[in-house]
């Protein structure tokens, strides 16, 4: 964990709806300038946790802090330092992109120049007069993100910001999220997309049935489950050869390289999805 101040701190959060426990003793820490990924399939408890962290839902156990303030009884002005993209974008369908942002610029008391800047950064400057009802799903998502970054908050909470988007739109959103991190904002995002989490996040938590089953940087998590610790050589004839990742294997690899037979070399480290499957016995899509 970095020595930076924590934007979000959750300590042993539990949540039940009747007899159903949706979160069980969840703890996490998100520092400023960090992108944190909350990963898990539908029903894992991601949205409930986000609601607790933003003070929309009261947990049944544990404590959560946002910028050091207890989320139970969070003062309203704390929201001025948060940018949100929730499961539902919550945009005014009949209003234009510009007017949607104008409303929030006036609420936050930010200058109008910030509206055009946010539209430009999200690639929506040319669509500023277009009503939301005529935007594609990707454009709506970008507009929701523009609204979230409009007032340059210290924390961005993004609930599946790229779900259902094409790869190029998703890549644009990733670039924007990285820019926000560079500015110093902490980013908490939930996603089903393991590749996205690996690319973007400094730390991830794998959530399964309300429990954090693994926590750390994506590389660390994958390394921990690299039981094979091997190198896989794919030859030009299609054959795959796996050798142990030890100094003794260096000569074998060198021989293949010299012979010019190698198509590709890669490690056998699992990806986050494989780790999750190993931990829970189920995939993310299930």
């Amino acid at each position: 964990m970095s020595g930076k101040a924590a934007c979000i701190r959750a300590e042993n959060i539990s949540m039940s709806f009747g007899k159903k426990e949706v979160l069980q003793s969840v703890s996490l820490n998100i520092a400023e300038g960090e992108i944190f990924g909350l990963l898990g399939p539908s029903g894992a408890g991601k949205t409930s946790l986000l609601k607790i962290l933003t003070g929309q839902l009261r947990q049944t156990g544990g404590r959560a802090f946002l910028f050091g303030l207890d989320t139970e009884g969070l003062p309203r002005d704390a929201y001025e330092n948060i940018g949100l993209v929730l499961d539902n974008t919550g945009l005014y369908e009949r209003l234009s992109c510009y007017d949607n942002l104008l409303l929030f610029a006036e609420i936050y008391g930010t200058g109008r120049e910030k509206i055009m800047e946010a539209l430009r950064r999200t690639g929506l400057a040319e669509a500023k007069k277009r009503p939301v009802s005529r935007l594609s799903k990707g454009m709506r998502q970008r507009l929701a993100l523009a609204r979230a970054i409009l007032h340059e908050p210290g924390l961005l909470i993004l609930d599946e910001p790229t779900a259902g988007l094409d790869p190029s739109t998703a890549a644009e959103i990733h670039a924007l999220i990285r820019e926000e991190r560079e500015r110093g904002a902490a980013v908490l995002l939930t996603t089903h997309n393991m590749e996205e989490a690996t690319k973007l996040c400094g730390h991830v938590a794998l959530l399964h049935l309300g429990n954090i089953v693994e926590y750390g940087s994506p590389a660390e998590v994958c390394r921990r489950y690299n039981h094979l610790n091997a190198i896989c050589l794919t030859l030009k004839d299609g054959e795959s050869i796996t050798v142990e990742n030890t100094p003794l294997s260096a000569k074998v690899v060198a021989d293949y390289l010299q012979s010019g037979q190698i198509e590709s070399i890669h490690s056998t480290e699992p990806n986050l999805e494989t780790v999750f499957m190993e931990l829970t016995g189920r995939g993310f899509a299930s």
Partner: peptide, 14 residues
């Protein structure tokens, strides 16, 4: 229904 009220209330609108 459209969750716009939720966004307003989470933007420091009472």
């Amino acid at each position: 229904e459209k969750h716009t009220l939720r966004m307003l209330l989470m933007s420091n609108v009472k």
